[in-house]
């Protein structure tokens, strides 16, 4: 049987938060075009796993992106390779405008490339146009979440990591986040790894689901 190329493959992947080991020898495979939902109770380590993938923590084990093993360790390396994290709590630069936030999303690509990508983003998400000059801190929670997702997309990742994107969001914004995600995976080349507690949202958008429990990943139907 032909082995389909996986977008992300984790083998014996462990993550430490400080000196505590939180994730133990995780084995995971995400195929291209998938929206993989990771579930589990509060504090079990979903955020740590995502942050570990993004390069923020000490990790051990193999990370294969598009069948190429990633050697880079830090966040900037991962961003360049094509892994981008939209974190829990958004972490937007609240004193800077939406435009500046977007540009910073493609920091590693440089100013010129960044401007071009930002323009493309405005075309893809017209909603942004009216708010481009607004300071990010003045947006509502839902608007900030949308900007955060767009910012994460600015580095043109192949794997988008979404941590609790719908927490505290009104239904209208959840739909917009879903649309953005669907737009992203259209074309079947990229994938999304999602960590969210919202059952309804997960059901509406996920193609694969798994539980994170006791630091290990257990697949679900």
């Amino acid at each position: 049987m032909e082995q389909a190329m996986s977008l992300l493959r984790l083998e014996q992947f462990s993550v430490w938060r400080g000196r505590t080991q939180v994730i133990w020898d995780v084995v995971l495979s995400i195929s291209p075009g998938a929206v993989f939902a990771l579930e589990g109770s509060n504090g079990v380590g979903k955020t740590t796993l995502l942050e570990g993938l993004a390069g923020l923590h000490t990790t051990k084990g193999d990370l294969w992106l598009r069948e190429r093993r990633l050697e880079s360790r830090g966040t900037s390396g991962r961003v360049v390779e094509g892994i981008s994290l939209c974190p829990d709590g958004r972490h937007l630069f609240t004193d800077m405008t939406v435009w500046e936030n977007l540009l910073l999303g493609s920091y590693r690509a440089g100013f010129a490339v960044g401007k071009r990508r930002a323009q493309a983003m405005l075309d893809a998400v017209p909603w942004l146009r009216d708010r481009i000059r607004q300071r990010a801190g003045t947006l509502s929670g839902g608007e900030q979440q949308l900007v955060a997702v767009c910012r994460a997309l600015m580095s043109e990742p192949v794997l988008l990591l979404l941590d609790a994107p719908t927490s505290g969001l009104a239904p209208a914004f959840r739909i917009q986040v879903s649309d953005l995600v669907r737009q992203f995976i259209a074309g079947g080349e990229r994938a999304v790894l999602l960590a969210d507690d919202d059952e309804k949202f997960v059901v509406s958008i996920a193609s694969d689901r798994a539980m994170l429990s006791g630091g290990r990943v257990v697949p679900r139907s």
Binding site: S76, P87, F93, M96, G105
Partner: peptide, 24 residues
């Protein structure tokens, strides 16, 4: 007006967020 300046400001406002952008 420059990207580097924006990076400096970003680090000042939200170091975690800045790291996620690939800023060191």
């Amino acid at each position: 007006r420059t990207l580097w300046g924006a990076a400096v400001r970003a680090v000042a406002q939200d170091t975690f967020g800045a790291r996620l952008m690939g800023i060191n």
